[in-house]
C-alpha cells in the first residue's frame, strides 16, 4: 500500500517532460500555461533551440538608437507552438526585473517579434540582448506611442504564458 502511494505521488509530482533539455546556456525560461516542458513545470530554452524556430526580420528605427537596424528573431506564435502554450497574454520579465504584459495579438496583428540578432549579429546583454521585443515602428505610424515603446522590452529572461482576465 505504501509503495502504491509512493508511485502515485511520484507520478503526480513529476510532469511529462516532452521538450528536450537545453544543451547550452539557458537564454529563456517559459512558465505558465504551457504543456511542453523540460524542467519541472517550466521550459528552459538555449540559443540553439531558439534559433531552430522560424525566423522573421524587421528593419526599423526606434527611439533608443540613432539609425535603422535590421532585427531578426522568432515569433511568439511559434514559441507557444513549441511549448504548447495556450494563453493569449505574455508576462515578460527582463534581467533587471522589469516586467511588462504583451497580448499575443501584437505578434499576430502588429508584426512584433522576439529579436535575437541586430544586423545579423547576436546581441549581447550590453546591446540589450540576448532577446528583445521589437515592433515595426517605421511601417506603422500608429505604433509610435508610449504603449508600444514600453512594450519593447529588452534583456528578456522569462516569459509567463497567461490567459487574459476577460477571457477567463
Amino acid at each position: 500500500m505504501r509503495f502504491l502511494l509512493l508511485v502515485i505521488g511520484i507520478l503526480y509530482i513529476t510532469p511529462v517532460l516532452a521538450l528536450s533539455p537545453p544543451t547550452g546556456r539557458v537564454l529563456l525560461t517559459l512558465t505558465g500555461s504551457i504543456t511542453e516542458t523540460n524542467a519541472g513545470h517550466t521550459a528552459k530554452l538555449d540559443r540553439k533551440m531558439l534559433n531552430a524556430l522560424p525566423r522573421y526580420s524587421i528593419t526599423t528605427k526606434n527611439p533608443w538608437v540613432h539609425q535603422a537596424h535590421k532585427y531578426s528573431g522568432f515569433s511568439a506564435v511559434d514559441l507557444l507552438k513549441l511549448t504548447g502554450g495556450k494563453g493569449d497574454l505574455l508576462r515578460i520579465t527582463a534581467l533587471n526585473k522589469y516586467v511588462i504584459e504583451i497580448p499575443i495579438t501584437d505578434f499576430t496583428k502588429r508584426g512584433a517579434i522576439f529579436a535575437m540578432r541586430k544586423d545579423s549579429h547576436p546581441m549581447s546583454v550590453r546591446e540589450l540582448g540576448p532577446i528583445l521585443v521589437m515592433y515595426p515602428f517605421d511601417d506603422d505610424p500608429k505604433l509610435k506611442n508610449e504603449t508600444y515603446y514600453w512594450r519593447s522590452i529588452w534583456q528578456i529572461s522569462t516569459i509567463e504564458v497567461l490567459t487574459s482576465p476577460s477571457k477567463e
Binding site: V65, L95, V125, R126, E127
Partner: peptide
C-alpha cells in the same frame, strides 16, 4: 559577473544614444 556588468553598461549606453 560579466552579465551584471553588461546590464549596468547597457544603461550607460542608453543614456548616451538615441533621442535620450
Amino acid at each position: 559577473a560579466y552579465t551584471q556588468y553588461d546590464l549596468l553598461m547597457s544603461r550607460v549606453d542608453l543614456l548616451r544614444s538615441g533621442e535620450v
